[in-house]
Nucleic acid binder design. Sequence first.
DNA 1: CCATATCACGTACGGCGTACGTAATCTCTT
DNA 2: AAGAGATTACGTACGCCGTACGTGATATGG
Lengths: 212, 212
Amino acid sequence: MAAPRKFSEDRLRAAALALVDEKGLAALTMRNLAAALGTGAMTIYNYVDGRDGLERLLVEAVMTAVRPVPGVPSPDWRADLRAVAEAHWRAFRAHPDVIPLVMTRRSLDLPTLAGAEDMLDALARGGRSGARLLIAFRLVSGFVMGFAQAELAGPLSIAPEETAEEVIARVRALPADRFPRLIEIAEAALDSGPEAEFHAGLDLIITGLTSG
Amino acid sequence: MAAPRKFSEDRLRAAALALVDEKGLAALTMRNLAAALGTGAMTIYNYVDGRDGLERLLVEAVMTAVRPVPGVPSPDWRADLRAVAEAHWRAFRAHPDVIPLVMTRRSLDLPTLAGAEDMLDALARGGRSGARLLIAFRLVSGFVMGFAQAELAGPLSIAPEETAEEVIARVRALPADRFPRLIEIAEAALDSGPEAEFHAGLDLIITGLTSG
DNA sequence: CCATATCACGTACGGCGTACGTAATCTCTT
DNA sequence: AAGAGATTACGTACGCCGTACGTGATATGG
């Protein structure tokens, strides 16, 4: 005893994600999404629990892209940890405008939890359990989140429509006697790129996990 | 040739911070802040560059609380790194509702940069420079940011008006065969507390920095 | 074939950021 | 002493936002 729904949830998700990827997070409004779907604003409420549900949908869409991580689990827990961490990071980078939502919202949905469990599984196979497992998890997931955030909003972050050269020009304009190290790493960042930095940081963590 | 200003910038900052600390980030509006100061909404625009400037003010207020870090610099770069990282983390935790702003906004203000330089200085005294310094910085600052985020929005985060016991009850309600490790660390989290986890994670990083 | 449950969505309201205009207030010049 | 000029205070109003509510359309079960 019902009328058929006009849109699938996938259609909703795709439209919302496209909206944010193209026009930024601020463009995520009920009216905008409805217009993109060619319908009225209130229709969205038949698919999503208000604004909050809309954001939830978006975060889930990004987190769903994390899994499955190919080749995981393997006998090499270190390789698995690297793979899972990188899968998260890649998913974030693919939709940078959603990162603020991922960072900010309390997400307890299945895709998010599954990604966490993947990471935990690799760490557990590295011989950790209980409190030591908790700490290792906090460390790795914190790094992944924080690294994504730093690229987006940190001192070396590159604004939309800005080039890496413009960033270093801005940093170089700082007083050199007060921020010598900041200037130094801004120059170093020109030659490395976030990919290499992410992997190197992760390797340092794995070194720490192995030694400690 | 001017009329005297009704409020000092400090007064603005304090009022904005109090508003957010007491009523949450959503309460940060021009009208609310003006009302708290007993004036009209448009008056705020004489002190701050629009909504964006208001948020900037708030982030700066939090970042200013990071420095100076007592006892830094000292001959022990490891102790200094710990102290600086912890100072950041403490400042974030003191105003949890501002964290989303800190995480989300591109902050290039002086207090933020000074905190970064402090961290870099400790790492540099540990014998790192150039690309290796950059990577170590990314690692540590990423961890600090990400750890704060995880406590706020991660799978083990505790919602406002929620207890740690309620969190583990919720986690325990998950299918145990699919999320065994998540359940394990949720139980472990009951005995440890974020303070100990933060320090232990940082120690793992320092171990990695020392070995690698 | 109609009763009924569901869906689509137009209207409207309160709150937001803020462009604009005006009145008030101080300082400096004469 | 008085007027000119600059600056601040802030009321009004507009176009957004999320969304409560109500109405008409639509497909299905009896």
